[in-house]
Design a protein around this nucleic acid. Structure first.
Lengths: 147, 147
DNA sequence: TTTCAATGGTTACAAATGAAACCAGTTTGG
DNA sequence: CCAAACTGGTTTCATTTGTAACCATTGAAA
């Protein structure tokens, strides 16, 4: 009978790997700042780009709009971001970090970079190149088709 | 000010990629058999190994024991698996697929393999080698440390 | 204009999840 | 023996998630 070896099945391995990395990383923003993943991504997107609409945030960070909506609401509650209505189109709001939000972002950036660095430091030069280019290749392969 | 580029941040890319692949693949077992991911993994684990305990299932397929418990309950409800109490240790149950469960498994295996094949077919030989060895390298790097 | 489809964003509801408490049963150390 | 401490597995409860319905506004078409 034909069997499937789960441990070698790429979708499974990929998911498991991502999950485990993400879980590890989440300790940083969760333990430290009490953020959820959508909240962290929102903080990160706004920190990086300055000002964005909720839709743009969702596109940049691959989040469903309800996730964005809730994350934004929570960060607003903490007074880490503010909304500014768009003059021309009153459906749209521009989101930006406050001083406090920016401070949190600034605290996170070096931690995130260190995390990534340390993760990659456990690999050899070739392995690092392999994972980076392999991921990039799969990303390209999925463009359009998925999502 | 130091910023973090989310789109290049490995944990994010990995998660996004895995999520997208997994979502795509889930259509197969979800649309076709109405299974959730934990259920699919349970089916797959038992199909592959024949008989397992819930704990073993959780280890093999990286699932929390509550997920396993619920997935097993659902597959049992469908009469796709049966439980047999362990003689020596009455806390333990051995799980195995029924005829119907096996039939579902047999239906899934070629689909899963085709999915993986088609995904990899979009990559060049080098890219395929890169993703496979990169993932393997990261898996090794995480052994022990995480989870 | 008025209507109708589309868009930005929020909300309501149901399902999936994780943490912790729990219930057997089992082992270990006095 | 007997009382912890432990283990396999389930259940409860609070939180997170996704889908779909929704509201307000805008743009396009008639």
């Amino acid at each position: 009978m034909e069997i499937l070896e789960l441990e070698s099945f790429l979708p499974y391995r990929l998911y498991r790997l991502a999950d485990s990395v993400s879980r590890e990383f989440s300790k940083i923003y969760s333990d430290r700042l009490g953020l959820t993943r959508p909240e962290w991504r929102t903080l990160s997107g706004l920190g990086q780009r300055g000002t964005m609409t909720a839709t743009a945030l969702g596109e940049q960070s691959a989040m469903h709009k309800t996730k964005v909506s809730r994350a934004v609401a929570e960060l607003e509650r903490r007074r880490w971001l503010t909304r500014t209505p768009n003059e021309n189109d009153r459906r749209v709001e521009h989101l930006a970090l406050t001083k406090a939000g920016l401070a949190a972002y600034r605290e996170m950036v070096p931690l995130a970079k260190a995390f990534e660095r340390e993760l990659l430091a456990r690999l050899s030069v070739e392995e690092r190149a392999a994972i980076v280019s392999g991921v990039a290749a799969l990303e390209r392969a999925l463009e359009g088709k998925s999502r």
